[in-house]
């Protein structure tokens, strides 16, 4: 099976491409650490006023903050993964080059984004999290199974993240420019994935809605699995359902989009 070796090769390439930009990675680590500090002090102030907000105690809230910073670039919570490149390729017509290849467009970009995501766990995730654990009182489990369950939850989280951004990128086939879509992805991502506040802390109907949206599968689910606040199987089922739905939608849109290829670079 050639395809069985192609997409891993694409993923390895995606990993290595991001690994070449060391200064950018270092800058990202610094930024995530600083943002983590700001958020931690904000959360501590908030949790002083409202203890057990969203069901978290202070240590859990602090852990949630550092998880968010650690997964911020891996899950491209504000966008900024391979979809930027895909948008540019669609806009310039270079996407035609990708279509000439005997490879599936969606799997190709998924593999590439997985490679990127795995690099960014290591390159941008570990340091801010360890920093947080050293400086603050965190609710980090000792149980290796909790960590394993967390690691498993990251995989569908990455796929859901890709699924959202792939749909956003494909919209450029119709819109011709990705700036507006990227901004929508960013705003929705910050709000709906729980980067501002844990989704558990959202009140009433609004909370029910955001916890049912695909963004909840990205940060909230893995965090709750690690903090022991949800059964891993329930989290996986929720994540997998959204992953499948988004990939299927991506496939449909891709089929419609490639029929339009022509228009650019005619």
């Amino acid at each position: 099976m050639g395809a069985g070796r192609l997409y891993p090769a694409v993923a390895v390439g995606g990993f290595r491409r991001y690994a070449t930009y060391r200064a950018a990675t270092a800058a990202g680590v610094f930024t995530n650490t600083v943002f983590g500090l700001i958020l931690v002090y904000t959360y501590l102030a908030l949790w002083d006023e409202k203890p057990h907000l969203g069901g978290y105690d202070q240590a859990q809230a602090v852990t949630y903050v550092w998880l968010g910073q650690a997964l911020y670039s891996t899950l491209a919570l504000q966008g900024g993964g391979v979809e930027k490149e895909l948008m540019a390729r669609i806009r310039t017509g270079e996407i035609a080059v990708d279509l000439y290849r005997p490879a599936d467009l969606q799997l190709w970009w998924l593999a590439s984004d997985m490679g990127r995501a795995v690099f960014q766990i290591l390159g941008r995730g570990v340091v801010p999290f360890v920093f947080g654990a050293l400086v603050f009182d965190m609710a980090v489990p000792d149980d290796p199974f909790a960590w394993a369950a967390f690691a498993v939850a990251l995989l569908p989280a990455m796929v859901v993240s890709f699924g959202i951004r792939y749909l956003a990128a494909l919209s450029v086939f119709w819109l011709m420019d990705g700036t507006g879509v990227s901004q929508a992805v960013m705003v929705l991502g910050i709000f709906c994935s729980g980067m501002v506040l844990p989704l558990n802390a959202f009140p009433g109907v609004l909370g029910d809605i955001v916890r049912a949206l695909p963004w909840a599968a990205q940060l909230q689910m893995p965090a709750d699995v690690l903090l022991g606040r949800t059964a891993p199987v329930a989290a996986y089922a929720f994540q997998a359902a959204w992953a499948v739905a988004l990939l299927a939608a991506g496939r449909l849109v891709q089929a419609a989009a490639t029929r339009r290829v022509v228009v650019q670079g005619g």
Partner: peptide, 12 residues
């Protein structure tokens, strides 16, 4: 337009 991987060595 290039089909090559912009950031990586040619051989990749």
């Amino acid at each position: 337009r290039t089909t090559l991987w912009w950031d990586l060595p040619l051989v990749d």
